[in-house]
Design a protein around this nucleic acid. Structure first.
Length: 111
DNA sequence: ACCATGACGGTGT
DNA sequence: GACACCGCCATGG
């Protein structure tokens, strides 16, 4: 994977994240798959860590609905606040009704 | 080149 | 759902 290819992947990732509707959330893996690189879920997480807050990174969690990035939003509990402010319920660091809240990029991309 | 480290994921128990 | 394992792959020491 060369530089331009990686840049293209990053762009697709960001484009996908800004599409996530408020009150919904998706996973690192789902984003990687939608971008065409199913094995790069870890990279999606890395990109989120590098992003500037202009994108709704709090709507990205792991495949089980756990807020694995909770410690990366400045104050502990910040990610949870952002989600609950949109109506997403969080219990023990995990999104409740994950299957309902989950938003699959693949169902929105192709169109 | 070797090794450890993750905002990860799938499978089995 | 919780836990343990193993596979994955870019990064940094």
């Amino acid at each position: 994977m060369d530089h331009s290819e990686k840049q293209a992947f990053r762009d697709l990732v960001y484009q996908t994240v800004v599409m996530i509707p408020p009150g919904r959330a998706t996973s690192y893996g789902a984003i990687a798959r939608a971008a065409g690189f199913p094995s790069l879920s870890r990279m999606v997480g890395r990109f989120m860590g590098e992003c500037d807050g202009s994108i709704p990174a709090h709507r990205v969690v792991n495949s089980s609905g756990v807020l694995t990035a909770a410690g990366a939003f400045g104050s502990p509990g910040r990610m949870r606040e952002l989600l609950e402010a949109e109506g997403v319920e969080v219990a023990r660091n995990r999104i409740r009704n994950w299957k309902k809240v989950f938003w699959d990029p693949m169902q929105e991309i192709d169109v």
